[in-house]
Design a binder for these strands. Structure first.
Lengths: 244, 244
DNA sequence: GGCGTGATTTGACACTGGTCAATCCCACCC
DNA sequence: GGGTGGGATTGACCAGTGTCAAATCACGCC
């Protein structure tokens, strides 16, 4: 396993299939659709990379020639507006695929939230493999569809919910996502800042802070530390963001 | 071309490929990726249907066994919340594909806005064809990706823009979409009610009305009739929703 | 261990946009 | 032509959030 240094001091290395077989994200991401011998074709075109807090994998306008599998940490997808406002359109976690865009250029910026590990592929190579491996094609299609459904839920949260409801929906979403990738559903760990959350929910960061305080006052959550929130009553929280 | 009556008095009929060749939406939708002989395979599994104003193609929770190509009119995709609020997550126009969902059940409701014509396919048949026709697979993937990008733009509009900016962004979007399918980019025709627009933009319908009036006072638009809006200065409107 | 910077919390206040209500407009029907 | 009903507009008011400011906290670094 040779190791190199790429622009930006980022470690980047190729590896063999044995590494994929023990990858914690394998059953979550597109690789899970492949058998060992098929995985080898993927292994040949991938490099593993690490990004530090805030580092960009790509920015709005960059060529979409590279795509990624997230294997560790969290990635923030965002849009910047002319007036300096920022909308976070999604957070990606281990198992998520990063690279859907119908165009030659990315329309969003992807940055590591705190620190993240990813597998990097050339889109052209992956496209070639998709033609050879129908399982892979199918799995990627499913993942794109599921991203679309997630975006529609995000739209609904942004359009119809109050600040506190948004906050509750966000906490429940993180809890579900953590459980889905084999982690605990409680307490919820927040790798991102209050400002990231605010920009995801269309709020001011002060409002995020106030909503968390209010929910703790109501005993619905416990703020164990700035980045660890315990959900004290799932049923009540579900009701809170669905009905009110 | 035999004609039948289906539940709900809806006309539904099969047809041969000659009809597809003159379909106005063909170059916009997934059919555009196919040659005449390939189109025939599609023709064999499709039925053409008409839906009246407000009629549902499917509702949240319905089986996702059917998928559609929109060929005329407009379709409204929406989510209902427990408290009676509704979020419109998208409007579909001729050329758009309706049926992306990663699951066995639809998570949104699809209704005709005023009146709409669609081609209906069994998902299972279409999946089979996708395996046989790589062009079709590729085109559908592209369309799913482009829906995802559109949803991310919608998220940004909902999260970061003021009421009037939202309204301007909406008008420009409709104008672009009309141009993209070969229509005029000005004036903009609105098949939907103020309430539909409000539920799309996360506003009250009174606010939509007020914003339109305000934009007309500023000479940026002319309300030629309730459902026809003339954009008087594209550059100024672009600036309005991008910067302010 | 102390310091410094950035993140977070809390408070005071202003303002956008929601709510409720009245009126208007227009298409459709008798 | 007049009536009817749903959609659209306009006005008055105010609740929920954003903004600005200050205080506090947390963490990395020396």
């Amino acid at each position: 396993m040779k190791q190199e240094t790429k622009p930006g001091q980022r470690s980047s290395f190729a590896f063999d299939v044995s590494r994929c077989l023990v990858c914690g994200a394998r059953n979550l991401n597109m690789c899970g659709s492949l058998e060992k011998d098929e995985l080898e074709s993927l292994t040949k075109i991938v490099r593993c990379e690490t990004f530090g807090a805030g580092e960009a994998l790509f920015r709005e306008g960059d060529s979409s020639a590279w795509v990624f599998n997230v294997t560790d940490g969290a990635i923030r997808l965002s849009n910047m507006l002319g007036n300096g406002k920022r909308q976070v359109v999604g957070f990606l976690f281990p198992g998520d695929f990063l690279g859907f865009t119908g165009a030659d250029e990315y329309k969003v910026t992807a940055e590591a939230v705190r620190g993240a590990k990813v597998c990097r592929f050339a889109r052209s190579e992956l496209t070639r493999l998709r033609h050879q491996l129908p399982q892979l094609e199918h799995r990627l299609f499913e993942m794109a569809e599921s991203d679309l459904v997630a975006a529609q839920e995000h739209i609904t949260i942004l359009g119809q919910k109050s600040a506190t409801e948004k906050m509750v929906a966000f906490l429940l979403m993180l809890s579900r996502k953590s459980a889905a990738r084999g982690g605990v559903d409680n307490p919820v760990h927040l790798p991102m800042t209050r400002e990231d959350i605010a920009d995801f929910l269309g709020l001011a960061f002060e409002t995020v802070s106030r909503c968390l305080t209010k929910l703790e006052d109501q005993k619905l959550i416990t703020i164990e530390s700035t980045r660890v929130i315990r959900l004290n009553d799932f049923a009540a929280l579900e009701d809170y963001c669905e009905e009110a």
